[in-house]
């Protein structure tokens, strides 16, 4: 029946042809440049650049802060999703709409706002200053910016799963004598885990590449608060294209591996679910 359909409806050649042409021109050919340039660089030179101290530090900072931010978002994202699905309180709709703000707000705007709020005399930073916690211009500040950027991922992955969860299973668990905590840990949590992990990895992957919201709050001190995308930017401004490309090639490979892992994981979860019936 589906074979038939392609004979009836018009525009297959035109739409597919245009889509592939456009994708090649805008995405595939330009992206391949990174690997062509890296290949021209030679293995030794590439290795020297990506293992230099400043670059290694920037990778460590990018990884550490993205991991921390994604972890915090996993915990609080789960709580937020729970509250939005299972609780009723005034202003819930508004809150639900607000979750997507990090997707809609320009990253530079987020960057200057968070810096202003979380600096020592800012609205929020002033509460942390007496505790001797500096947020802006430290790795903590980078983490705050990445928490902001990654916030919607976990919430939006977990929310629909929680919504479609079969309430009867929970009720059965409770009527069989399980406590609320046991019901959550043994019945609800395993169902949410795949969505939670997907949200976590998406937030992590997004955090690795984030630039706009981080540059303002980071302070950008080499070896301390310099993230990998910023180092690419610095190299570009010095017209060190080879250096920038080498750093970018590592970042690209890492994000592709993340993307493939997320996809495989989601396919695996779907199959697992089908197998269970």
């Amino acid at each position: 029946m589906k074979k038939n359909r392609s004979h009836v409806l018009p525009g297959f050649g035109l739409s597919l042809g245009f889509a592939i042409f456009y994708l090649s021109l805008i995405v595939l050919i330009p992206l391949s440049m990174v690997f062509i340039e890296t290949a021209q660089l030679g293995w030794d030179e590439w290795f020297r650049i990506v293992t230099s101290e400043r670059v290694i530090h920037s990778y460590k900072i990018s990884f550490g802060t993205s991991l921390a931010a994604a972890g915090i978002n996993a915990v609080f994202g789960l709580i937020v999703a729970w509250v939005l699905v299972r609780c009723t309180f005034p202003g819930k709709r508004l809150l639900d709409a607000l979750i997507d703000l990090p997707f809609a707000l320009p990253t530079a705007v987020a960057g200057i706002t968070l810096t202003t709020l979380y600096s020592e005399n800012g609205w929020i930073g002033q509460f942390f200053a007496p505790l001797n916690i500096k947020i802006a211009f430290t790795p903590l500040g980078i983490t705050v910016a990445l928490i902001f950027i990654g916030l919607p991922f976990v919430v939006r992955m977990v929310q629909p799963v929680l919504q479609n969860l079969d309430k009867e299973v929970e009720e059965a668990a409770e009527s069989l004598g399980a406590s609320r905590f046991q019901t959550f840990r043994k019945v609800i949590f395993p169902e949410l885990l795949p969505a939670l992990l997907s949200g976590f990895s998406l937030a992590f992957a997004r955090g690795l590449g984030e630039y706009g919201s981080v540059v303002f709050i980071a302070g950008n001190m080499p070896m301390k608060t310099e993230i990998a995308p910023l180092l690419i930017m610095t190299k570009l401004e010095q017209f060190d294209y080879a250096g920038a490309t080498a750093i970018a090639s590592v970042m690209l490979v890492i994000s592709f591996v993340c993307l493939i892992l997320i996809n495989l994981f989601q396919i695996w979860c779907r199959k697992d679910r089908l197998a269970k019936g």
């Binding site: 440049m33 590449g209 294209y241 592709f256």
Partner: peptide, 27 residues
Amino acid sequence: LVSLVELPFSVSPVIAGLIFVLLFSPG
């Protein structure tokens, strides 16, 4: 094809800029 359409989401914006510099800069 579907995965390729979403590819730009997983590329850092800075790298998105870099690739066009590599293509179009005088060198």
